[in-house]
Design a binder for these strands. Structure first.
Length: 959
DNA sequence: TTGGAATAGTGCACTTTGTACGAA
DNA sequence: TTTCGTACTTTGTGCACTATTCCA
């Protein structure tokens, strides 16, 4: 019985599942079952040996035990506890000696487990049988000893997961899911982008904007700094909540968020974009597409391990704010709730008890939320209880109170009086409105909503990660203008460098950062991702992605791709300003949606830009400049610091990680060093191939070229030619492979066809890997049976081998058509057409003959059967083929009939005709009789027509 | 505790030019 | 007797990738 892995696996898995119980307690049982099912399926799929099957059975058995079921219900402690009433029944019953031993061992089993967990890992378990015995029959009740095995759960066991690599099918499926998810997120981004152009929302935003901020668009050259007051105002007037439970359209949600001045991260980001656009700034809505992993099970394993680690390490068990990290990831003090619904309920219950004293209310909420978070965190009641007992005196709480005071005071300073008042009012009265600054700080984001929040959960996945922001085109930045990262929610301007760090800290991958404008989209990941090599493998192949984005890029470019003016001292600043304003307005070509109350220029921005660029300035489309910028970033990626990154790095390589068929040529320049290894440009890496392989590409090795690399021959050595004890021969047979690089090649120079003779290889054929492999003066005729024609015409030809087919462990050449000299092409094709025509006619004739023959056989057999039946049988129709009875001999190709449905009264009469006899056929209500005298024969067609008196006739071709 | 390097394990791609036997 | 069609015996090695372990 192989118990170690199975028990540990099951207990480890269960503990992992129990760890995530708090996340979704309702689905725990399902998850448990699903996990078990998955293991069983996996075992079946892999065709496990008997021992592994036992593992599965054990797993199922252990899970089906009462205690394990209890665990599945999520009521057990972290330690796994397995009870066997009939532990190792065989050893107890079959062998008394062994029984004693087993008892002794069983008695110490528990202590052994507890004492030396480490030892358990070192024990080699043996396979054995595990028959299912009747415990009553094999064990007297007195002998049944309950043995309890307790496994001390360690973080390591939670971390240990079954090793199974994804199959190609699973990878394909994951890729499909990845693609579909990407498309969905792209569509979502476009919807948001469109909503940002809503004229009502833009007008509403303008209406609440202080007057002095309206002037921002009046700057001649927009600088990132000029956006700061605007962003600061937005930051102070809008706050983030977790996703609302109500399902409403995006426009409604934005309107609602605008009215209440709070919304989800996505809504607020959209509002900020709408505001910038209302101010006639060229603005994009930018989003990280947090798409499903392109690798199978990656998300699942990550989340499981993350959840497990959360529990084991107790990340959530401390309420201490990570202030430093907070700054690092520029978290907003306005954070969404982790679980709004729960908190809302609890807030409602506590609403009545809240006093007007905001501080006491805040403290109550603090405690409440602490309690909630405790409840949510894996039910680790002991830690929760201790935390509660510590009350507000804890270091984290003190720290928090200080932050609260700072936040409150800052809010009072920064916001109008009325806002503060309303905040306080809301704080005290509207508990369902997750608006308290206190709450904002204390609570953490709901992971599902991907909202941001203060990272008490820092280290957990994707919480607090920046997901949405804006990009505003600032013409005053750099020489040519620049897209500036603006995160109004977190009050950050020009913080593109920080995005990657923030995302890293929150374990969000910057796989796809897409900017939306004008219903189009553009991938701007390069702007934010400095470590491209880390995400490259997580992205879909660039060809597909580029194809998808191509039409969207055009839309986006049309909306934002105004002319950027390269720096020129003579540039007319006023013109430039007009460009900015005009382009900002024209970014979103939805004339029907432009606000009526906003005075907008009628001309498109691009047109305006072009007009204004007619001076001394040199204008280049912005998108071209941006593309160059992104391209430059792609080519100037910093050197990775770890060796592994160079394995498939698109820009750099180190010799160590070159594959067998790669070489550095030329070997330089050295761009740097990594762990002592010189780093070369990836462009220096050349792929090597054998001569034969190059031939397939239509290239041949130049004369006098030595192999660039010599490697051992892969694959099994050819032993056939040598006797078994011929060591010398066997050594030789291993052989070597000479590899050549691209720089050693020249175009393939094949021999010419002379005098109608096709040049062939040593096997008398031509390898046609591609058209380039055809000898000069020849052509490939890919027609079936064409070689017969060439042979008949006595034209020289060679079979065209087009590849190999691998069957039964062997490879066989695949031939398709022939290679002939060009001058015979017409003759062969003409003869081939004739031959095919003749063949088709012959085939048709053969088919017809076969059909006639089969019909004749069929009818003959029917007639014979009926004749015999009439002669020797009782005339019953029971032996008639049922299908034929029902068919009424409906005529087919060669059988015609004229059916008279009138019943005949002569059925009985014809029974007298026995020998010589007429053909008899039965129908449902009539028995056809074909009398000899009623038959006629047509010599022309060799067709005999048999008639029944009922009018039914059958035509039979005489053969 | 974290990150990098080494190591181990696993899936997958590549390999590559028959033969015996029966039916027509 | 020759020609043609079909079934058979259904690889095995090494690379590349990934997870794990070890170590600084």
């Amino acid at each position: 019985m192989r118990t170690r892995s199975s028990n540990k696996q099951s207990s480890g898995k269960e503990s992992t599942l129990s760890a995530i119980r708090d996340v979704d307690s309702e689905s725990l049982a399902d998850m448990s079952n699903e996990a078990v099912d998955k293991l069983v399926k996996r075992a079946k799929r892999r065709g496990l040996s008997g021992k592994n099957k036992q593992d599965n059975r054990l797993q199922c058995a252990s899970i089906s035990t009462p205690e394990c079921r209890t665990k599945s219900n999520g009521k057990q402690a972290v330690d796994a506890k397995v009870t066997w009433n009939d532990l190792d029944a065989r050893s107890f019953t079959r062998d008394p000696a062994a029984n004693e031993t087993s008892e002794a061992e069983g008695g110490s089993f528990k202590s052994n487990f507890q004492d030396s967990d480490q030892e358990m890992d070192d024990i080699d378990w043996e396979d054995g049988s595990d028959p299912i015995l009747d415990p009553i029959k094999n064990h007297p009740v007195d002998d049944i000893r309950e043995v309890t095995i307790e496994f001390s759960e360690s973080p390591d066991s939670a971390k240990r997961k079954p090793i199974r690599r994804a199959t190609a099918e699973e990878k394909g499926l994951a890729e499909l899911v990845h693609k579909v998810h990407l498309l969905c997120l792209l569509a979502r981004g476009r919807i948001i982008d469109r909503a940002c152009d809503d004229p009502l929302i833009q007008a509403s935003l303008l209406s609440i904007l202080p007057m002095h901020l309206l002037d921002i668009s009046g700057d001649s050259k927009l600088h990132a700094k000029a956006l700061s007051p605007l962003v600061h105002w937005f930051h102070n007037n809008f706050r983030v909540v977790s996703s609302s439970s109500e399902k409403k359209s995006l426009h409604s949600a934005l309107a609602c968020a605008l009215g209440t001045r709070e919304g989800t991260l996505e809504e607020l980001a959209a509002l900020s974009v709408a505001l910038f656009r209302a101010l006639k700034l060229t603005t994009r809505f930018v989003s990280i597409l947090d798409v499903a992993s392109i690798k199978p099970d990656a998300d699942k394993y990550e989340s499981l391990s993350q959840d497990a680690s959360k529990v084991c390490r107790g990340i959530f068990n401390t309420s201490t704010l990570m202030v430093d990290r907070l700054k690092e990831v520029f978290m907003s003090p306005k954070s969404p709730l982790r679980n709004e619904k729960k908190i809302k309920d609890n807030c409602s219950s506590s609403k009545k008890t809240q006093s007007n004293d905001s501080r006491s209310a805040v403290e109550q909420k603090d405690k409440m939320i602490d309690t909630l978070s405790c409840e949510e965190q894996n039910n680790t009641s002991e830690e929760c209880g201790s935390k509660q007992s510590q009350g507000s005196k804890r270091k984290g709480d003190l720290e928090f109170e200080m932050q609260l005071q700072m936040a409150m005071s800052a809010t009072e300073v920064a916001t109008p009086q009325s806002n503060t008042g309303s905040d306080l009012k809301e704080l005290n009265s509207n508990s369902s409105n997750v608006s308290s600054p206190f709450k904002r700080i204390r609570t953490i984001a709901n992971e599902e909503s991907s909202s941001q929040g203060i990272s008490t959960a820092l280290g957990s996945r994707k919480i607090g990660s920046p997901l949405y922001w804006a990009e505003v085109y600032c013409s005053g930045e750099n020489l040519t203008g620049k897209w500036v990262h603006v995160d109004a929610i977190h009050d950050i301007v020009d913080g593109e460098q920080k995005v990657e760090a923030a995302a890293d800290a929150c374990k969000t991958s910057l796989r796809y950062v897409v900017a939306f404008a004008g219903l189009g989209a553009k991938d701007v990941t390069r702007r934010y991702c400095m470590k491209w090599y880390k995400i490259a493998s997580q992205r879909i192949n660039s060809h597909w992605w580029d194809t998808v984005l191509a039409p969207l890029r055009e839309l986006e470019s049309g909306a934002t791709g105004g002319m950027a003016l390269l720096e020129n001292p003579h540039v007319d600043a006023s013109n430039e300003h007009e460009n900015v304003i005009a382009s900002g307005v024209s970014d979103h070509p939805m004339p029907n949606e432009l606000p009526n109350n906003v005075d907008l220029p009628k001309e498109s921005g691009r047109k305006n830009d072009v007009q204004s660029s007619g001076g001394n300035s040199f204008a280049t489309p912005r998108n071209v400049i941006e593309d160059m910028e992104l391209e430059t970033r792609a080519l100037t990626e910093p050197l990775p610091t770890n060796q592994q990154a160079y394995r498939n790095h698109p820009l750099y390589a180190i010799e160590k990680w070159l594959t067998k068929c790669q070489i550095l040529h030329p070997k330089g320049p050295i761009l740097g060093f990594c762990s002592g290894h010189p780093v070369y440009p990836r462009a220096c890496v050349q792929t090597l191939r054998t001569k034969e392989r190059w031939l397939r590409e239509g290239l041949q090795v130049k004369a006098n070229e030595l192999p660039a690399k010599v490697v051992k021959q892969s694959g099994k050595p050819k032993k056939v030619q040598f006797s078994e004890d011929d060591d010398y021969g066997e050594t030789d047979s291993k052989g070597i492979i000479e590899l050549y690089g691209m720089w050693q090649l020249e175009p393939l120079q094949l021999p010419h066809a002379v005098n109608g003779i096709v040049p062939k290889n040593e096997r008398g054929q031509v390898d046609v890997w591609s058209e380039r492999c055809l000898p000069v003066g020849t052509m490939h005729l890919r027609l079936p049976r064409v070689f017969y024609v060439a042979k008949r015409l006595e034209i020289d030809y060679a079979p065209a081998m087009v590849g190999f087919e691998f069957r039964n462990g062997r490879s066989f050449p695949v031939f398709d058509g022939i290679v002939v000299c060009n001058e015979f092409k017409d003759a062969i094709l003409e003869a081939y057409a004739e031959e095919e025509e003749r063949r088709e006619a012959e085939e048709k004739r053969r088919n017809e003959a076969q059909a006639i023959s089969r019909w004749y056989q069929l009818l003959s057999s029917i007639i014979t059967r009926q004749r015999l039946n009439n002669s020797y049988g009782n005339g019953s129709t029971s032996q008639m083929p049922s299908n034929f009875q029902n068919a009424n001999i409906q005529p087919d190709v060669h059988v015609g009939s004229q059916r008279n449905t009138q019943p005949s009264g002569r059925q009985k009469d014809v029974k007298d005709h026995k020998l010589n006899a007429p053909s008899v056929t039965l129908t449902d209500d009539h028995e056809h009789v074909f009398l000899v005298e009623d038959q006629s024969f047509d010599e022309e067609t060799s067709t005999k027509t048999k008639r029944c008196h009922c009018g039914f006739s059958v035509q039979v071709e005489e053969l």
